Simulated scan of single mutants.
Amino acid sequence: MINVLFVCLGNICRSPMAEAVFKKKVQEAGLSSKITVDSAGTGHWHIGNPPHEGTISILTKNNIEAAGLQARQLKKKDLSEFEYIIAMDAENLGNIRALAGHSNTGEISRLLDYDPASPGEDVPDPYFTGNFEEVYEMVDCSCTNLLTHIREREGI
């Protein structure tokens, strides 16, 4: 199995959105038996909570399943269990790398690294901006490109 983990700050907006979007793309590609998808947050504030209502709303609007999504905190063991660890912004990326230290981990990158047309490097946090539609568009495009990257790299 190829394991993909999306990481944001609280795991209630961006990373669960990316998890749900990517999971749907994996299912549509017929790769659910080869790729698992999860999400986590670098912070502990929302552990056990469902996604933000804005995330649920945008996923529902786009016919993407949100059931079962629940916030959890990134753990050191995640760094050895996931081949692809995808951060939403520079702060998340720094926190992931700090947790990893010198240990071997999978590929650590930012989601917008997979969208060369993106005007920025970070997915803005809709918890603060309220712009769930803009974030969804970034996540959707980047997840399409990420799946292509994984398929090419892994030969699936």
Rank of each mutant, 00 (worst) to 15 (best):
Asp140Arg: 12
Cys141Asn: 13
Lys75Ser: 11
Arg14Gln: 10
His46Cys: 01
Asp89Gln: 10
Ile47Thr: 10
Val123Thr: 07
Gln27Ile: 08
Arg14Asp: 10
Leu79Ala: 02
Phe82Val: 11
Ile64Asp: 07
Pro124Glu: 13
Leu112Ser: 03
Ile96His: 12
Arg97His: 13
Leu74Cys: 13
Ile56Trp: 00
Lys34Tyr: 12
Gly68His: 11
Pro116Cys: 00
Gly155Tyr: 03
Asp78Trp: 04
Ile86Tyr: 11
Cys141Gly: 08
Arg14Val: 10
Lys76Asn: 12
Phe82Leu: 08
Ser33Lys: 14
Gly101Val: 10
His102Ser: 15
Ala18Arg: 05
Val21Lys: 06
Asn49Val: 01
Leu69Asn: 12
Met88Gln: 06
Asp125Phe: 01
Val135Ile: 10
Gly68Val: 04
Thr129Ile: 11
Phe128Ser: 11
Gly41Lys: 03
Thr42Glu: 04
Arg97Trp: 06
Ile47Ser: 05
Asn49Ser: 12
Ser80Tyr: 08
Glu152Met: 08
Gly130Lys: 02
Asp89Glu: 13
Val7Gln: 13
Ile12Leu: 09
Lys75Gly: 03
Ala29His: 03
Gly10Ile: 09
Val135Thr: 15
Arg110Pro: 02
Gly120Thr: 14
Leu147Gly: 08
Ile56Gln: 10
Asn11Met: 03
Met1Lys: 03
Asn95Phe: 13
Ala20Asn: 06
Ala18His: 02
Arg72Tyr: 10
Ile64Gly: 05
Val21Pro: 08
His46Asp: 08
Glu107Thr: 14
Arg72Glu: 04
Ala18Thr: 02
Glu134Thr: 14
Ile2Pro: 01
Leu74Gln: 14
Ala71Arg: 05
Arg14Gly: 08
Asn131Tyr: 09
Lys23Val: 00
Asn92Gln: 09
Ser57Ile: 00
Ile56Gly: 03
Met17Gln: 06
Ile85Gln: 14
